[in-house]
Design a protein around this nucleic acid. Sequence first.
DNA 1: TATGAATGAGACTTCATTCAT
DNA 2: AATGAATGAAGTCTCATTCAT
Lengths: 212, 212, 212, 212
Amino acid sequence: MNMAKFTDAQKEARRREILDAALRCFSRNGFHNTTTADIVREAGVSQGTFYLYFKTKDDVIAALADDESQSDALINAMAAAESDPVAGLTVLFNRHGQTLANPQHADEHRVAIQGWAEALRDEAIRKRVVANTLRVEQEIARLIARGQESGRFRADAEPQGIARALVALFRGLTLQSTWEGAFDSKLTAKTIEDMVRGTLLPVANATKTREK
Amino acid sequence: MNMAKFTDAQKEARRREILDAALRCFSRNGFHNTTTADIVREAGVSQGTFYLYFKTKDDVIAALADDESQSDALINAMAAAESDPVAGLTVLFNRHGQTLANPQHADEHRVAIQGWAEALRDEAIRKRVVANTLRVEQEIARLIARGQESGRFRADAEPQGIARALVALFRGLTLQSTWEGAFDSKLTAKTIEDMVRGTLLPVANATKTREK
Amino acid sequence: MNMAKFTDAQKEARRREILDAALRCFSRNGFHNTTTADIVREAGVSQGTFYLYFKTKDDVIAALADDESQSDALINAMAAAESDPVAGLTVLFNRHGQTLANPQHADEHRVAIQGWAEALRDEAIRKRVVANTLRVEQEIARLIARGQESGRFRADAEPQGIARALVALFRGLTLQSTWEGAFDSKLTAKTIEDMVRGTLLPVANATKTREK
Amino acid sequence: MNMAKFTDAQKEARRREILDAALRCFSRNGFHNTTTADIVREAGVSQGTFYLYFKTKDDVIAALADDESQSDALINAMAAAESDPVAGLTVLFNRHGQTLANPQHADEHRVAIQGWAEALRDEAIRKRVVANTLRVEQEIARLIARGQESGRFRADAEPQGIARALVALFRGLTLQSTWEGAFDSKLTAKTIEDMVRGTLLPVANATKTREK
DNA sequence: TATGAATGAGACTTCATTCAT
DNA sequence: AATGAATGAAGTCTCATTCAT
C-alpha cells in the first residue's frame, strides 16, 4: 500500500474546509441545531470523511474556540507592537469596533457567543476561554502599565482591574451588536474612549480633551 | 358547575416549580443537554404534566428569559426610586456586583448566558432579550440625565452611550464571574466606579475623589 | 344522596350531543387523528363527562356505526313499504342518490367510509357492518323477489346476487362522490336504472323503455 | 471517487422489502395501529434505516397507494390489449374476480380499503386515488366505445357512466369480499355479466344469451 | 353528575457514530 | 484516504384514561 498519500498541508487544508463549513452552520443554527450531516453537506464531504478529521462533533467546537483565541491574539499582538501605549489602546479599540461592525466577522462572533455558553458545561472549552481571557487581560494590563511608566497614564489606576473591565465591555458589546442588526459604533467608540480617558489620563489631559 | 378546581394561584405555583426545576437543570447541563425527562424528574411531576404548563421545551427557555427580565427590572426600579441619581447608580452597581458574587444567583446567571446564545437563533427569545436590554439602558440613561440636570454629572456626557456601555460591561462581567469560581468583586467595583466617575463627574469632583 | 338526577331522556340527549360532535370531528380529521380532547371541545363538555357516557373512544366509533345502520334501515323501510316493487327500487335509488349529492350527509358518508376501514381490524365493528349489509341485501332481494312473483321482473334473475351487486355499487359510488367534490348524479342514476332495467325487466319491456 | 456503494437496484430492493413489510403490518393492524417499530421488526431493519428510505410513516402509505395504482394499471393494460372489446371486458372481470377470491391479494385489498379512508384526510393520497380511478374509468369507457363502434354494444349506452358504475361496483365488492371470509365469486361474476350484458348488448343478443 | 388536572406508556423521528467496501 | 448505508439509543411530545374534588 502507498502510505501518506496526502501531505500534511493537504490534510490541514481539508480540515480547514470542514472547520469553515462548521463555522457557517453553527452561526446559522447554533451548535446544537447543527448536525454533522449539515456540516458535511456544507463542506462537500462525506460523513465518513468528517470522522477522519475530527474525533467527535464536540471536537469541532473546541477547535473553533481555539481559532477565536488566535484571532484575538492577533489583534493583541498588533496592539502590543505599537511603541506608544496610548496608540496601542487606540488600535485595540478600533480593531475591535471594526470587527463588531463588519458583517464579515459576524459568523465568528455568533459562534463565539455560543462558545461562551458552551464553556459553562464543557470543561475543556471553559479552560480555553478563560485562558484566552486572561491572556488578553495581561496584554492590555501591560499596555496600561507601560503607559503609567511613561507617565502618560495616571499612576493610581489599576491596570489589572481596568483591563478586566475592558475585556468585559468588549464582550458585552459583541452581544449587543450581534443581536441587533445595526450598531452605532461611533457613539460606542466615543463612550469607550471617554471612559478610558477619564480613568487613565491625568486630570489635566482629561480636561483638555474635553475642552477640544 | 364551573367550580375552578385549582385557583390560578395554585396553577401559577405549579408552573413556578417546574420553571425552577428547569432552571436548576439548565444551569447544570445547559439547555440542550437537559431533557424534558430531567426537568420533570427534578420537578417531581410527570411528563404529561410538564406539557400541561408549557407548550414545548423552548417555551421554558423563553419563560426563563422573561423571569430574568423581571429581576433586572426590579433592580432598576429600586435604583430609579432613589432621589439622588449618584446614589441610584451606586445602588445599581452594588446590587449587580452582589448578585455576581452571590452563589445563590449562580444558576440564574448561567442560564442567562445560555439565553444569550439562544437569542441568536430564536427570534422570540432575541426580541425579549433586546427589549430587556433597551429597557435597562433607558433606566440608566434616565438616571444619568437626571444627574446632569441637577448639575452633578458633566453636561457633555452621552447618557445613551454610557448606559449602553454599562450594560455591556455588566454582561461581560457576568461571563467572567460565572466561568471563574472566584471573582474579585471589590477590584471590579472600584474600577467601574472609577470609570463612571471619570466619565460622569466634573473634573473638580473627579480630582477630589481621586485625592481622597 | 339523590339518585337519578337526570332522566334517561336527558342523558340520551347528552349522549347524542357528544356523538354528533364526534361525527363532525371524525369527518374532519378521521378517527385516528381525532383526540378525545377534540371531541369534548366540540361537544362543550369536560373530559370526565365524556367517560360518563362512553367507555372508550372506540365505543364512539361503534355507536356511530350503529347510527349508520339505522339511517340505512330507514331508507329500506320506506322502500319496502311501497306496494309496487319497481317503485320501491326507484325510491331506493333516488334516496341514495340524493344523500350522495346532499352535502348535509357528507359527514355521515365520510365517517361511514372510515368505518369500513375500521371494520377490518375491529371485530365488533365488522360484525355490525356485515350484519347491516346482509340486512340491506335481504330487503332488496325481497323487493326483487316480489317483483318476480308479480311477473314484472324476469324470473331468471338472481335476487340475491343482484341485491349484493347493488349494495356494492352504492358503496363504490359513495366513495367516488365523497372524494370528488362534484358528482354527476344524473348520469349515474341513469346508468344504474339502465343496468337494473336490462337485468330485471323482461326483454319486451326493456326494449320499450329504450325506445322511449 | 464517487463509487456508488449500492446500485439503485439494490436500494430499490431494500425499499421494496420495507414496503412489503409495511403492507403486511398495515393489513394486520391498520395504518394507525401499526408502529414504525412494527414495520422495521417485520422488515428486519433498524429504525434508522426505515427513515433512510421514507421521509415519514405517511410516506409509506402514499407509496403503497401508488403500488395499488400500478397493479390496477397492469390489469387494464391486459384488458385493453385484447382486440375484442367483449373479450376485453371479460378479462377485466375475471381478473378482478380472481384477485377478490385470491387470498394472496388479501393484504393488498385490506390496505387499499384503508387507503380509501386515508384519502379523505390526506390530499396527496386523495389525488392519487382519484387520478387512478379516472384512469381506470377511461380504460373501461374506451373498451365500451370500441365495442359500440364495432356494433357489438348498444349505441345508446353511455360508456362514461357505465365505466364509472363498474369501477364503483368493483370497489364495493372488494369491501364485501374482504370483510367476509368467503365470497361467492361465481354468483357475483354471473350477476355482473348479466348486468353488463343487459346494459350493453343489443336486445337480440341479450335475449339469446338469456336463452342459453 | 360533572370537572379537569394528572398520568405515563409509547409514538415518531433524529443523529452522532461506525464500518464494510 | 474516502464513502455513505446502517445503526439504535435517546429525545420530544401526545393522548386515552383516571380520580380526587
